[in-house]
Design a protein around this nucleic acid. Structure first.
Lengths: 159, 159
DNA sequence: AATTTATCAGAATGTCCTTCCGGAATAGTC
DNA sequence: GACTATTCCGGAAGGACATTCTGATAAATT
């Protein structure tokens, strides 16, 4: 386990760039420069460093799930059988691999793992549930929470 | 309540553009055109339509929370007191407004709302918990799950 | 077959990206 | 205080790109 790098120092310009690109990642460099009050070349250097130092992990188009037939979201809490390291790692690896799993967290409390699943409809979730989740080794309990309404998704990091 | 529009028809080119921009939303139009096998002008028209019809909701820079001092993630399950419409709407509105709430879902089951919170550290969560969550009207029970490890975050929609 | 519609590639122009360079400001050293 | 090293900025420049328009081709419709 190695220590993660922390941002060395972020200038006021860097923060502005982060805020702006978080809201619209497709802004041109010249437009970005105007908004943060820098010359295009200076702005370019800042932005490049933010990518190189991995402060910005990536830029991603957010697609409306309704439009591409992935309307159904389900939150799933998992309790594992035995709390051995191998069991946990095997589960985590499966979650990483399955494309229907959009998020997966190891948590403290009455639950071991929380998953956010996205599929076409409820019957697709049923298939996923029985074929993928239940067939994983070490799964003792599965608590399923169907999402009735998405109040907020993909909220921006407060900066 | 009005019916949401569904994507009328997505061509093979559209799907390719969606997949590509989901992986790298900052690609130039000419590079995107090369990758999907279209002329720049045709690619431009497709992309523009995908934005106009809101298939692509936005393009967003994903910022590493560790780098900007928002390292601590917490999942919170909420059970509300009385299940009146007004109570639910008030809670949802508060969740929408609070910047620390990155995601909020109304779910079916033993829990009413699930929240994903991001703050600087545990003491910041304590403050948020007592000052924001507990002070909301109608909150009967709060179940807190501290995130110990983020196996997968911001997974791409499978296309 | 004729007409309409949709979709593509090409051309053209104005803008932008990207790099490189030199100057100003800051900090550190003696 | 002077000198150096470092950092950061803006300007210039050519090559690439964005964006629009037009016409051609193919598909769908009548």
């Amino acid at each position: 386990m190695e220590r993660e790098t922390r941002a060395p120092e972020l200038s006021a310009h860097d923060w502005k760039i982060l805020k702006t690109l978080q809201q619209d990642g497709r802004l041109s460099n010249s437009e970005l420069a105007k908004r943060v009050g820098l010359s295009p070349s200076a702005c370019w250097n800042h932005t490049r460093r933010l990518f190189e130092t991995k402060v910005i992990r990536c830029v991603r188009a957010l697609i409306d799930p309704k439009m591409v037939d992935r309307e159904t979201a389900v939150l799933v809490g998992i309790v594992l059988d035995r709390s051995t390291k191998a069991v946990f790692e095997e589960f985590a690896e499966a979650a990483r691999t399955l494309p229907q799993v959009l998020e997966c967290y190891l948590v403290a409390g009455e639950i071991d793992y929380f998953l956010k699943i996205r599929v076409r409809d409820i019957s697709a979730f049923n298939r996923f549930h029985s074929e993928k989740i239940l067939s994983l080794p070490g799964v003792r309990q599965v608590r399923t929470f169907f999402v009735l309404d998405e109040i907020k998704t993909d909220g921006e990091l407060p900066l």
